[in-house]
């Protein structure tokens, strides 16, 4: 397989303008997945709200799991061929390097250290989460300027502490910062009204608000985005074809949402494509598959199986989930978010 990859690179170097007839971009990992008949994805040793959970039938679910199932459908044509390997946080990168999993889709931030020293490659970010403030609703605050003279509580020793202090200082908001050793202490302090605001990772705040507080409506998550961390899928360095595969899986899910293709109407859309882009996406016109070395209809099968990105989000984090997390940054660029797909030509 190594030979093929080298060949593909050689062909690419020889002249990008030439259209090579060989099946290019076919990656070693994709080939391995096809030979094995299953795709190995990362799970969790327990559950990570909204991203990796287990349902009442002892099956995995969540945003990250659905992305894995989407990619599995793209490669193998069947979402149930995804095999989820439970991994702890500490274990995820070694497990990827040793080949225990093919890809890590596990709420993992794209950092320089991971990208370089750890020898990983990241896909397009599929989620943006950042530091935000949650405040008691009866304070009537709508943005961080309302925190003037207030108390902000954070978990000690986290990046959140530094980010919040910087942000409020820059904005000229006088405040008292109180840090707590553990998340549980912090939660208790906030609930006991010892803090006006609770600074934390946005999705975690939303989950906390939805699940642990008695009256979710009594708390407001402010619109201020103090930071934004891209969450992406991580893969082993050295298999560009597989990164392409992951990128175009995410891209196809986003394009489908942009074009209004859903799991419900995908067959209809394929029968009468409204525009050439959708026709290309759904494999009515050739091109989608050949360039990745897989079937032309992969995106159609994938959307039929798991839905478009919006459906996946709503089911796991958004309006159809207990968390009811706003799309916010994680909306399409055309709806005020920062998610966008590369150009489908």
């Amino acid at each position: 397989m190594k030979k093929n990859t080298t060949l593909a690179i050689a062909v690419g170097l020889a002249g990008a303008a030439l259209a090579p007839t060989a099946s290019f971009a076919q990656s070693a990992t994709v080939q391995q997945i096809m030979d094995r008949g299953t795709m190995l994805c990362s799970g969790h040793n327990g559950s990570y709200f909204g991203f990796v959970e287990v349902n009442d039938k002892n099956e995995w679910k969540g945003l990250d799991i659905d992305l894995c199932r989407a990619m599995t459908t793209a490669i193998l044509g069947d979402p149930d061929k995804a095999q989820i390997v439970p991994l702890s946080w500490a274990q995820r990168f070694p497990a990827l390097q040793s080949g225990d999993v093919d890809i890590i889709i596990k709420a993992t931030g794209w950092t320089m250290g991971r990208d370089t020293e750890l020898g990983l490659q990241f896909s397009l970010p599929y989620f943006f989460g950042g530091t935000q403030f949650m405040v008691h609703g009866d304070l009537g605050i709508s943005d961080s300027s309302g925190l003037e003279g207030g108390t902000v509580c954070v978990e000690a020793g986290t990046t959140i502490e530094r980010i919040s202090a910087n942000y409020l200082q820059t904005a000229g908001v006088e405040h008292t910062m109180v840090s707590y050793e553990s998340a549980a202490e912090l939660r208790a302090a906030y609930l006991a009204n010892r803090c006006d605001a609770f600074a934390g990772w946005g999705p975690s705040l939303a989950v906390l608000r939805a699940t642990e507080l008695d009256n979710p409506d009594a708390h407001v998550i402010l619109n201020d985005q103090l930071s934004s961390e891209p969450i992406a899928a991580a893969m082993r360095q050295g298999d560009e074809g597989f990164v392409d595969m992951a990128n175009w899986t995410i891209a196809a899910l986003l394009i489908a949402e942009e074009e209004g293709v859903t799991s419900a109407n995908v067959e209809e859309m394929a029968a009468t494509p409204p525009n050439p882009k959708v026709a290309r996406l759904l494999g009515v016109e050739p091109g989608m598959g050949e360039r990745l070395g897989i079937r032309d209809t992969w995106a159609r099968e994938m959307i039929a199986a798991v839905g478009n990105f919006g459906e996946i989000y709503d089911r796991n984090l958004g309006s159809e989930s207990p968390y009811n997390l706003e799309r916010g940054l994680n909306n399409l660029w055309s709806h005020g978010g920062v998610l966008y797909a590369p150009i489908l030509d």
Partner: peptide
């Protein structure tokens, strides 16, 4: 063994309350 990704009784207990519905 939960640390090395085994789904033992404690890990599965964590997963049991690890969804929005059962978290409280």
């Amino acid at each position: 063994v939960i640390i090395i990704g085994f789904f033992d009784v404690l890990a599965s207990a964590k997963a049991a309350f690890g969804t929005g519905e059962w978290a409280p």
